[in-house]
Design a protein around this nucleic acid. Structure first.
Lengths: 114, 114
DNA sequence: CAGGATCCCACGGGATACTG
DNA sequence: CAGTATCCCGTGGGATCCTG
């Protein structure tokens, strides 16, 4: 799905949920979205703005102040997004175990389906 | 979210929904999941199998037959996934327009906020 | 039919330095 | 404070050829 490409990407979701509860500032996001670099924050913000999921409001003060606000389209995303992350939470250990088992079985390359 | 990384990737979702309605065969997926290459089909199937979202069943016949079936964990994903794709569908044109507008505004680099 | 192996490119994304 | 610019690398993914 082409439209979901922007929701994918390592940071979009994190930024969106960070902006869920009202306007957020750049530096605020930098602290909130854990592990994100300045560069990726900027790039992802630009993409989300371009897709109409965030509105960027600049206050021409000094020092500068920029606020990002989730649009209604973005807010409609929060439901599905929450469902998805909750699923991930529920199945995290299950998936980890599945990976472990799979890796073990495929370590012994000559395994006869034992 | 680390666990969602596998759901991301260009093809995982497409493959999962293709396997939603029962077991599917390799070639069947190759036709169903539009635009996927043999290579990515194999790789993505392996990843989904490793994460316990698909079960791979081999019938030792000639010619070979391999069936992929969604696990219960994967089936629990369909709800959230559907919600997400429906959101994408609802907002597809909106997003396209937003992009268009954004691109126009940023084409005139010297624009003084019109 | 259902893959595996190899090559090769595009792009996502981190690190770092500079700016209005 | 809120960016932009540059460099550089890992990997996602397409094309093509080979195989049990």
């Amino acid at each position: 799905m082409e439209v979901l490409d922007q929701v994918s990407g390592k940071w979009s979701i994190g930024i969106l949920v960070a902006a869920a509860h009202g306007p957020v500032r750049f530096t605020e996001l930098e602290r909130t979205v854990n592990g994100i670099s300045r560069r990726m924050l900027t790039l992802t913000l630009r993409r989300l703005e371009r897709d109409g999921l965030l509105v960027r409001k600049v206050y021409p003060t000094v020092p500068p102040k920029v606020e990002y606000t989730a649009t209604s389209a973005a807010r409609e995303l929060f439901g599905p997004l929450t469902a998805l992350t909750e699923w991930a939470e529920r199945h995290r250990t299950t998936i980890a175990q599945a990976r472990h088992v799979y890796d073990l079985e495929n370590a012994e390359k000559g395994s006869a389906a034992g």
